[in-house]
């Protein structure tokens, strides 16, 4: 990749998680780089390992999961050192926004308690600090929200509060794990705009994990497409989403377009999202163009252009 001294640099990241029949590698061969202020979309269907990848970067995987990487550096620090390295970074330089804002708050504590705990950590002891940070994310009745328990607020409101808390910490990298999936379209757009505002204010990088292609196009500079635990295509958002090259990306975009256009015959992708297969292409079982080479040799990530990479033996089919 062409970015000079990236903020985050990942080479050959793999995540092994415990499964019913022993540990299995859910994510493998992830190569990523993220510059300051940049937004990288991590696109893929459920089970493709995009959330695990995001959690691995923060060291927040469930217990039993193991992370390995050839390189895993954040601003020069080797994150492979685990908790001793990651714990001081979290909440200071690394932040996270989650898919389920309702579950993100302790149901037994008021919003004000959550805000104050974060602001104390940041050293902000102004009496109106919490209200200030809430108004920055467009919450008007700040006092009412601060006095409420999480179950008394909507998902969109809670997501704003979470963004306010993460924003107050001013991290350099935010992992946003499907932050709009549980919200309706209007609120989702507002939340995306808030994330962008946050980015404009602090110049932070965002790893935007999503399966929403429109949201990715709206927010991201670059996108990476994941299939079965590995990245199959990565490049500028405009190139990948408007002129996709990988059969999976093409299928995904054709399906979305056919849904949007209300085509009488839905363009569907065949097959089910599956596990990583040993040997061969990760998209093998679902690819219309698979041949013996795809079966025997896993394709490497090769450059189509200096900034657009593809993991496919047949880029021109």
């Amino acid at each position: 990749m062409t970015i000079a001294t990236p903020l985050l640099s990942v080479a050959d990241l793999a995540v092994t998680v415990p499964g019913p029949s022993g540990p299995w590698t859910a994510v493998a061969g992830i190569d990523l780089a993220l510059a300051r202020g940049e937004t990288l979309g991590l696109i893929g269907e459920s089970g493709s390992g995009k959330t695990l990848t995001g959690l691995a970067l923060l060291g927040l995987l469930p217990s039993g999961a193991r992370v390995t990487a050839r390189r895993l550096t954040f601003d020069g620090q080797d994150l492979r050192g685990g908790e001793p390295v990651l714990a001081p970074l979290r909440g200071r330089r690394l932040g996270m926004i989650v898919q389920d804002p309702v579950g993100a708050f302790n149901p037994a504590k008021r919003i004000g308690w959550h805000m104050r705990a974060v602001l104390r950590r940041r050293g902000d002891r102004r009496p109106d600090a919490a209200a200030c940070w809430l108004s920055a994310v467009g919450v008007r009745a700040a006092e009412r929200v601060l006095a409420a328990y999480p179950h008394q607020l909507s998902g969109g409101m809670l997501q704003r509060v979470l963004i306010a808390m993460v924003g107050a910490l001013e991290p350099d990298l935010i992992v946003a794990d499907e932050p709009t999936t549980n919200l309706d379209a209007v609120v989702a757009r507002q939340i995306l705009d808030l994330i962008r505002e946050q980015q404009n204010r602090t110049g932070c990088a965002v790893l935007f994990v999503t399966h929403d292609l429109a949201a990715a196009r709206h927010l991201c500079d670059r996108v990476a497409v994941m299939v079965a635990g590995t990245i199959v295509e990565i490049g500028p958002a405009s190139a990948v989403l408007e002129a996709p090259r990988h059969p999976y990306t093409r299928g995904l975009i054709a399906t979305v377009r056919s849904l949007a256009a209300r085509d009488p015959i839905l363009v569907e992708m065949v097959g089910e999202p599956g596990r990583r297969e040993t040997g061969g292409c990760p998209f093998l079982s679902r690819c219309p163009h698979a041949d013996p080479l795809c079966r025997s040799d896993p394709p490497g990530l090769s450059a189509l252009r200096p900034d657009h990479f593809l993991r496919c033996h047949h880029p021109d089919v």
Binding site: G103, A104, R121, V166
Partner: peptide, 16 residues
């Protein structure tokens, strides 16, 4: 300890 708010609290940098 498996609930999401625990994970988020850790992500916000709160000590163990």
């Amino acid at each position: 300890s498996l609930s999401e708010h625990v994970r988020v609290a850790r992500a916000l940098g709160h000590p163990g």
